[in-house]
């Protein structure tokens, strides 16, 4: 590692270095793609789960606890188990796919399959947590709204769409922001999917290298803290960019759903 005292002023050189590194741009697009693949299904499933948990159920605490157990599992443990599940030869997933007649997939090697594998780890760990957050918000929706909607002849699906979803809007925005921030920082999952030297570079072709991995590889594996710090700033810039897009989409969603539900019931 570069001696910390031997650092000297280089101006924009470190930024120049990473911005001209194709591996950096691969990491940017990987991070972005994994973010989308992991966040969107995760929040949709969580919403459906919360809806189910909101029914009057036998042993409701049991179901909630079960669904939350992945949250208690650390990134490291989760990534290591899934590394075995995703093994090309004799992994649990390929074995199951084999039963249905599919050929084994080399999950970690493929450009899309490796991103999917990492997303599945993320989805597994966080869906239950988000479902509980949605559930809490659903239980805060006043029952009068549902009564009013049903008096107007709204079906259950319409009630879900026109009462539940709009009432959950602040919570949904909150979870989108939190999951986006989280997905920008994925580190343990890609590091341990294959482990060792593969993990430090995000696969043999950097197919699942995230920005955090790139930062780690530059700063700690190769020992250049300067470029690593430049990567950190790039991450902040990207995060702000995504936050701005989120905000714009959020505003758009608010406007359209407001005009759709002008019954005065939502806010």
């Amino acid at each position: 590692m570069t001696g910390l005292d031997s650092m000297e002023w280089v101006g924009w050189e470190n930024f120049d270095k990473i911005l001209h590194d194709p591996e950096f741009w691969t990491s940017v697009s990987n991070t972005f793609l994994i973010g989308v693949i992991s966040t969107v299904p995760q929040l949709l499933v969580a919403l459906g789960l919360a809806h189910l948990l909101n029914y009057r159920l036998r042993a409701s605490t049991f179901w909630r606890t079960i669904i939350l157990t992945p949250y208690a599992t650390s990134v490291a443990s989760a990534a290591l188990v899934f590394a075995l599940v995703f093994r090309a030869d004799g992994g649990l997933l390929n074995w199951t796919l084999g039963l249905v007649g599919f050929d084994p997939v080399n999950w970690a090697n493929g450009h899309w399959t490796s991103k999917l594998a990492i997303s599945i780890i993320v989805i597994w760990r966080w869906t239950g947590y988000n479902a509980l957050i949605y559930l809490a918000a659903m239980q805060a929706v006043p029952n009068d709204l549902y009564e009013a909607a049903s008096l107007d002849g709204a079906s259950r699906w319409q009630q879900f769409r026109k009462v539940t979803i709009p009432s959950l809007r602040p919570t949904i925005l909150f979870t989108i922001v939190i999951s986006t921030i989280g997905s920008m920082q994925l580190f343990g999952e890609p590091l341990l999917l294959e482990g060792g030297a593969m993990g430090a570079t995000g696969g043999n072709e950097n197919q699942y290298e995230t920005l955090s991995i790139y930062l780690y590889n530059y700063g700690w594996n190769l020992g250049h803290l300067g470029p690593a710090a430049a990567v950190a700033w790039a991450m902040l810039a990207l995060l702000l960019l995504i936050a701005a897009v989120n905000w714009l989409i959020g505003r758009y969603v608010v406007r359209t759903s407001d005009s759709a539900v002008r019954t005065g019931a939502t806010r």
Partner: peptide
């Protein structure tokens, strides 16, 4: 319908 889609609905086998 009068019970709403909220917490009072009893979960069916599908749930």
């Amino acid at each position: 319908f009068r019970m709403g889609a909220g917490q009072q609905m009893k979960g069916g086998p599908f749930a």
